[in-house]
Simulated assay, not measured.
Amino acid sequence: MASPVGRLELVERDDALVMISFDAPADGSPRHERGGSALLTEAHRQLVEYFAGRLRVFDLPLRPVGTDFQRRVWDVLAAVPWGTTTTYGWIADRLGLPPGASRAVGAANGANPLPIVLPCHRVVGADGTLIGYAGGLERKADLLRLEGVPTEADQIALF
């Protein structure tokens, strides 16, 4: 699908969304096996609504594939509200991890197979800077701006 952050490929398996890939081929040819058009149609509709600023919470069956630790991190991501940010350290603390575990959280965040829907773009560095987005920092900034969150580039532009 076309989106304000580039072409997205939506992948379904066993009646659940399992992956959203950035930079999908323009010819529409899938890079991954997929099926079940009803779910993909609904996911497409919800993403269109999100990009239009009319949807703040996705309601889709999700089945991201990852380790137990990664899935725990992604569960916390799913609870980060639209239009807000959090830090890797906060997620580590929320999971009861020891100090310094923010790097492990960052690695799990980077492995998120469902960006946008599991909002890893809402996680920033401890000092508020945009760091570590698998889709690229420009996309991260675009998604945050879409949600009304100013980025450090926006703040610098004010002065």
Rank of each mutant, 00 (worst) to 15 (best):
R56S: 13
R56Q: 15
V57H: 12
V57M: 04
V57T: 14
F58W: 07
F58N: 06
D59E: 14
D59F: 03
L60A: 06
L60Y: 04
L60R: 08
P61F: 01
P61E: 11
P61H: 07
P61V: 02
P61A: 06
L62F: 02
R63C: 09
R63E: 13
P64V: 06
P64E: 08
P64H: 10
P64W: 02
P64C: 10
G66Q: 08
T67F: 05
T67C: 04
T67P: 06
D68E: 15
D68V: 13
F69Y: 14
Q70M: 08
Q70T: 02
Q70D: 15
R71G: 02
R71E: 08
R72V: 00
R72I: 00
V73N: 07
V73P: 09
V73S: 09
W74F: 01
D75M: 05
L77Y: 02
L77H: 15
L77F: 01
L77K: 03
A78C: 05
V80C: 05
V80P: 06
W82R: 12
W82H: 15
W82V: 05
G83Q: 10
G83I: 12
G83W: 09
G83M: 06
G83N: 08
T84K: 11
T84Q: 14
T84C: 05
T85K: 03
T85L: 04
T85R: 10
T87N: 01
T87S: 15
Y88N: 03
Y88P: 00
G89E: 14
G89T: 14
W90G: 00
W90I: 04
I91R: 05
A92T: 04
D93Q: 15
D93N: 10
R94Q: 13
R94E: 12
R94T: 13
L95F: 02
L95I: 00
L95Q: 04
L95W: 10
G96D: 06
G96H: 07
L97T: 00
L97Q: 14
L97H: 05
L97A: 10
P98G: 11
P99K: 12
P99E: 11
P99R: 11
P99M: 03
G100M: 09
A101G: 12
S102V: 04
R103Y: 11
V105M: 03
V105K: 03
G106A: 10
G106M: 11
A107M: 10
A108S: 15
A108T: 12
N109W: 04
N109I: 14
G110D: 11
G110P: 00
G110F: 00
A111S: 14
A111I: 03
A111K: 11
P113N: 08
L114F: 01
P115D: 09
I116Y: 03
V117C: 08
P119C: 07
P119Y: 07
C120K: 09
H121S: 10
H121M: 06
H121Q: 13
R122M: 10
R122I: 11
V124N: 00
G125A: 15
G125T: 02
G125R: 12
A126F: 07
A126G: 12
A126I: 08
A126H: 12
A126S: 13
D127P: 03
D127R: 14
G128K: 08
G128P: 11
G128E: 09
T129Q: 14
T129C: 02
T129L: 05
L130T: 08
L130W: 00
L130M: 06
L130K: 10
I131H: 01
Y133K: 06
